[in-house]
Amino acid sequence: MLEIFIFALVMMYSPGPVNMLSLFAGVSDYGWRALRFCAGVGAAMCLLFLATGYLGSSFMTGVLQGVAALIGGAYIAYLAVKIIKASFSSQHADRTPQNLTFVSGFLMQLTNPKAMVAVLPIVTVQFPQAQVEGLMILLMSVFLGAMAGGAPASYFVAGHRLKQAVLNPTIMRWLQRVMGVTLLALALQFLYNGYLLLS
């Protein structure tokens, strides 16, 4: 069972769009409201583990993964454009988009292809090997969902601690631009992967 947690830890805590947005929210002094975004991420992962654990991975077809990748890519591109636009406005240069809510975290993680890359091997290979079934699927899904919510929360706290190093507005504007371009690149990758899955 230790292998499940190690794999989940590596997959969930590696840099990705959700974790990077949380890091940036911490650096930008967005406030502890960003933790509701992290809770949404955890809830989405819990739901994905429950659905694939009880219904099986057969319902997550290539077409469904492609649609999720397209939706996720479009949403990430939207956030990237908002961040880049904010970097050119002096009054908002130090702020992240105001839509880091529970719902946005939930939807972003639910449509994040990286989430399914983490969920499917755990549910289809590691759960059966560890004899995780019945009620244990529910308990493991809740625990792994909490781990997933902890990933962006830890990035947020790290960003919050680093904010003193980047309080200069010029540095903040460039940080926003780099973050926006990085998210845009991720969005394009998601859109491309979605296109491949649907074609």
Score class of each variant (00 low, 15 high):
121 P>M: 11
196 L>N: 15
74 A>E: 08
139 L>M: 13
150 G>D: 01
135 L>C: 12
33 R>K: 15
176 Q>D: 10
8 A>D: 11
4 I>S: 01
194 G>T: 10
93 A>E: 12
18 V>G: 00
10 V>R: 04
102 F>A: 08
21 L>H: 04
169 P>F: 04
59 F>W: 13
7 F>C: 00
195 Y>T: 13
81 V>D: 02
115 A>L: 05
14 S>P: 00
6 I>C: 02
23 L>N: 02
117 V>E: 09
49 F>P: 08
139 L>D: 04
119 V>D: 12
78 Y>W: 14
49 F>D: 08
167 L>M: 13
196 L>P: 10
70 L>V: 15
38 C>L: 12
2 L>V: 11
26 G>E: 10
199 S>R: 14
145 G>W: 00
37 F>G: 08
22 S>N: 03
61 T>L: 09
13 Y>W: 12
67 V>E: 04
57 S>L: 14
96 T>P: 01
139 L>K: 13
181 V>D: 00
30 Y>C: 01
36 R>C: 07
33 R>H: 13
93 A>R: 15
134 G>D: 05
68 A>S: 12
175 L>I: 06
139 L>E: 09
104 S>Y: 13
80 A>D: 06
91 Q>N: 06
57 S>I: 14
111 T>A: 14
55 L>A: 09
42 G>R: 03
177 R>I: 03
44 A>K: 10
52 T>R: 05
95 R>E: 07
4 I>M: 02
84 I>K: 08
19 N>Q: 04
55 L>S: 05
191 L>G: 10
2 L>C: 08
77 A>D: 08
197 L>Q: 15
93 A>N: 06
146 A>S: 11
193 N>Q: 14
133 E>V: 14
15 P>T: 01
6 I>Y: 02
25 A>V: 03
14 S>N: 04
23 L>M: 02
131 Q>N: 10
177 R>F: 04
85 K>M: 08
153 A>H: 03
146 A>K: 00
112 N>A: 09
50 L>K: 08
172 M>R: 13
49 F>S: 02
186 L>W: 12
112 N>M: 05
22 S>L: 02
168 N>E: 09
36 R>G: 06
